[in-house]
Every structure is written in C-alpha cells, then in structure tokens.
Design a protein around this nucleic acid. Sequence first.
RNA 1: GCGCCCGUAGCUCAGCCGGAUAGAGCGUCGGACUUCUAAUCCGAGGGUCGGGGGUUCGAAUCCCUCCGGGCGCGCCA
Length: 550
Amino acid sequence: MITETLAQIVTTALESAVADGVIDAAPILSFERPKRREHGDWATNVALVAGKGRGAPRDVAAALVDRLPPNDVIEKVEVAGPGFLNFYLSPVWLHDVVRRASDPSQRFGWAKRHSKEKVNVEFVSANPTGPINVVSGRHAAVGGALASILEAAGYDVTREFYLNDAGRQLLLFGESIAAHYLRRYGVEASVPDDGYQGEYVKELAEKIAADIGDRLVSVPAEQRIEELTGIGLAVMRVDMERSLERFRTTYDVWFSERTLHETGKIAEGVERLRQKGLVEERDGATWFLSERLGDDKDRVLIRGNGVPTYLAADVAYLTAKFDRGFDRLIYLWGADHHGTVARLKAATEALGYDREAVEVKLVQIVTLKRGGETVKASKRGGVLVELDELVDEVGVDAARYTFLTRSIDAPIEFDIEAVKQQAPDNPVYYVQYAHARICSILRKAQEQGHQVDVASADLSLLVHPSEDDLMRKLATYEEVIPETAALRAPQRMTRFVEELASTFSAFYRDCKVVTDDDALTAARLSLCVATKSVVASALGLLGVSAPESM
RNA sequence: GCGCCCGUAGCUCAGCCGGAUAGAGCGUCGGACUUCUAAUCCGAGGGUCGGGGGUUCGAAUCCCUCCGGGCGCGCCA
C-alpha cells in the first residue's frame, strides 16, 4: 500500500532529524487524505506534533523536507498551513491501482496477508418462536456485512446464529400452538395470557394439524405441548433460515442452546466459576459474584427452582466458543440488552479469558412506524412487521442498503410506509446504476471492436481531472476495507461506494470513453473496468447486487 | 437515582481513533435529453454541529457540566 511506502520515506527523514537534534524524538507517524485537492495526495501532521513546544512547526516541516531520501514516488512536497506536509505523488502509483483493481481475481483492497485471528460473529439470534422481523433485518444486514468486511480485511470469520431453543419462551410458544391446535378440533382451549398472540401461531397450528391430524388431541397435555413445541420449532427454524437467506444472510453455524443443557455444559460452566471462588448459594439460588468483576451487582445462575438463567447458558456458550478455537467473539445485540454486557464480560474474565477478546456491539433500537404511528413490535403481542413483508415491498437491495447507511449507534426510525414510498429514491439505485452504466459502455466498446487490455493500455493518457479523481477514489478502497473492519462500521463502505459512483458519474460526464482515439479509448476502458470491479466488490461485501443493466 | 446510546441543513443521516473552507440523500427553486443508460447531470438556497465551560497551535470530534430524547437497571429473555 502506498502509505507504507510513504511511511518508510518519512521515517528516514524523521530519524535524520532526530540525529541532527532538530526534534527530540520521532512522533507516531500517520497519513491522511486531505479533503481538498490542492492539499496534495497525502498529508501528515508529524511536524506539528514534533514541533510542539519548539515554537515553529513550519521550520520542523521544512527540515523534514530537506531530509527526505531520494525516491520515485513523491513528485512534490509542500509545507502548508500551520505545518502540514503535503505530498503530491507521481501518477505511476495511480496507474498501478488501476491495473490491480481491474482484475477481480486479484481482490484489490483485500488484505494481502491473512491474519491467523479466528473471529466469531454472532448476530440476529432471534427467538425461534416467530418469523424474522424488520428489527432482526437490521441485525442481519449489519452482521452479515461486518462479517464479510472482516473477511476481506483478512480475518478467519465464522457467522453464527444462537438458537434459543430452550427455556420458558419456548414452552409458552408450545402452549400457544397447542391451544390453537385443540380449538381446531373443537376442544375448548385458550392461548396463555403471556403466550404468543400472533395470527401466525394459529396458521402454524393449522398447518401442523394438516400434517399430523388429530393424534395429539387425546394425549396428556404435557406430551402434546412437548411434541407441538418440537414441530413448531422445526418449522420456525426453517422459516427463519429461508427468510434470512432471501435477505442474503447465511450462517456457518446454527448453535443450539438446548445442546448446552443436554450435554451438561451449563452445569460445567457453573462449576468452573465455582472453582474460581466466584459462586455462592444464597436465598436458595446459585449466584455468580460478578460485582467483583465490574458488574453492578451479583447475578443468579441457577434459580431457586433449579432452572438455569439465560446467563448460565451464556457462560457455557462463551466457553464453547473459545473451545472451538476462536480468538475473538463479536456479539451483535440489541441495545436493550446493554445491561447484560457487564456480566458477560465478568464471566469472560472469571473464566480466564481476555476481556477484550469479547466484543459486544450494541445495535441501536429500530422504532417501527406505520404511517406516522409507532408500532410496538412484539412477537408475543402479535404485532410485528415481518422482514419478508419489507422485502416484498422494497426489495432486498433497498432494504439492506437502508440499514447499512446508518451507524449501529444511531437509533433508526423506520416508517415502513415511508420506506416503501422512498424506495424508488434509494441511493442504492444510484450506485447500481453506475455499475450498469459501466457494463453498458463495455458492451458498446466490444460491439465497436475495442479490446479491453489493461496491461497494455497507456494509462499515462488519463490526465483529465475527472480521470484523476476517479483513480484516486479507487485507490482509497485499500484503506476503506481495513478502516471499516477496524471500526466495525459498515456504513463507511456504503458511503465509499456512493462516493465512488458519484466520482464515476463525473468522469462519465466529462470523458467520453469510446471514441476514434484507440489509445485513449483503451486507457479509459481500463479505468471503467477497474471501477466496475471495485463497485461490484464493495456492493458484494454489503450483500447488495451489482446489476449488468437496469 | 445509576448505566449505555443519541442530539449536525426543513426531513433522514454521514463525519467523531483532534487537523486546513462541516458533507450526502430526500425535499424546495432554476436549468440540461437527436449524446457511451436522464434511475443521470449542472446550479441555487439552506447550519449558534443542543447550551455552557475546559484541554490544545487547532475541537462537530477529547474532558467536565447542564438541557432534551431513547433504552436498560428481575430468581424475564
């Protein structure tokens, strides 16, 4: 990457300046891309930092310029403003970018060296007691994009869904199905007050009845509920997976909470904590002394009735993940779960793992609205906006893109009517249109007998400011991937691809690609191919399609 | 009361790991299609970056404080 080369050059100058007593020590060196074109290709503030207290950062900057070793990268250096060093690079590096970017098999922008770090990204993990809703859709879009971007940044990533297929919620779900099932056969029954009221439960019960008939009507209630829970769970599980796949969200692992209970892992986890002296029996329950490890208060692991809490399962699950060899666990949780982060971190430390290896990203609330009216999404209450419904209305691309332009820290007000209405104006189409347009140009070039051969094209013909801008924008992709991954901020990728599309549009406006000038046409076609490849790559990481025509 | 998040253009939001003149989309107003895709482009208008204080050569960005909004503070998940 060009910044590495620049860093080497400037470091040499810094060392020389230290040796000569111009500055005391070489500060941390960083480069940034100036917002304004006249500030060069890359800038650094080292002189400002190193000159601190010495009064004249500009003098330090000038001294550094004098000490830059000879090289074939930097075309010009200027000392600017309070003491910035602005570097203007030789166009050769941009040509190199175009060549590398134009070949999709080279995966331009992706990490060259693969980290050994194994990362587990767990996201959505919704209760399997109802269809995937719009809120989970945000998690699916963000988690999936984040996982892909981490992969591009060189991590070994596993996408995981934690299936809460145990516990009270599931029982309530089973009881709710059973009530509808019985009523279907004329037996009086009602859904528990705290059960699942949604219409889909009735449909589910009827579907099951159609499959298995009335054989569960006359069996003991306990058996009926157990069997219906199992069948209902399996149906919902398939349904969720299908909705998520339709939303271009796939998983490597569906991890069942139930297996933790059945294999004794939960009891083991409690024992491990007990051995650390962090478990205490109190009021008939088993407590984790998490307050000692930074939590607000101690937490119950095993209730008085012998049933483990969600935390106990989390402890076992945490262990299971580390046992599978992961170095880092990223959890995407709804912001309403932030209160449980401290206990998970406490458990991490208690079990002897690195606190920092567990990273909980809180995805802020999605407030659902429908025509201005707030709807409280709740599976149990029966009010929900299904992801499938959103996809039916606005399509996968627009839905994903809408979620991916926002920071996970930003609460989203999601008015489904407004989103449907605005769908045609969604910026995603702008980006896709740019891609389709490039494809159209390439088709036209081919019709006219132009061959695209980036290797032999004379890229030094690309001298128009719009060509220059486009090459520079392409070059930034190499920083966008690692930055987006490091900040866990998929919206950066969305912004980037939008800017790239916009920069391409300016190029399209100013520079006719297919002309009688064969050499220039070849150069511009190369730029088109590179742009197409980067747009497709970025959209791919976001899970958005890149159409050949629109 | 305590904790976490948010407050930036009319609306929805980027920018926040300190940098040079704060951005985008939508909306509004005015322009551009015999042209490689007008799902586009060009231009205009629009801002006490919630208020105040501090740190710094430099603050939308870091710290403190206040105000406003959201979420959470269970032997629920």
